[in-house]
Amino acid sequence: MQPKMITLTVNGRKHQVALNPDETLLNALRQLNYTDVKNGCEKGDCGACAVLLNGKAVNSCLVLAWQADGSEILTNAGLGTMDNPHPIQEAFADAGAAQCGYCTPGMIISAKALLDQNPHPSEEEIREAISGNLCRCTGYAQIITAIQIAAERIAASALVGSGQGGKQ
């Protein structure tokens, strides 16, 4: 077993790291201090470690870091910050969708993947999209509300942005 230099672009930042083949993307990201990617089960059951890998939401515990060599990775922390949160993050805060907050980063990643594909999802579509993200605190209700609020806000700001609404 020999380490190999691989390149991971995480939240827009390029990292070159020497990793052993048995390192999962989850562990690699956490070692690079992306600790918003949470370890909940390491078997793909809980979704706490979800990231966007080249735009697709995946369990980072089920990806070997080498398999992600050269990939673009987006974690929840890459979406926004305390000063400039992403509309989904803002909606999660407003709707009470984060209780303990441990499932939240993965949950928001699944929400982001959904809204990227389907900007106006139904409740059923939201339930399906987050069905791989376990939450033990909220019972999912406020998470679903948050994703609905986020969808509305993103649509509204797109209208403003395209000049079809708001002030010119």
Binding site: T81, A93, A98
Partner: peptide, 9 residues
């Protein structure tokens, strides 16, 4: 505590 949890910080 909501926003810190939402942005993963």
């Amino acid at each position: 505590d909501a926003l810190g949890k939402a942005v993963g910080s």
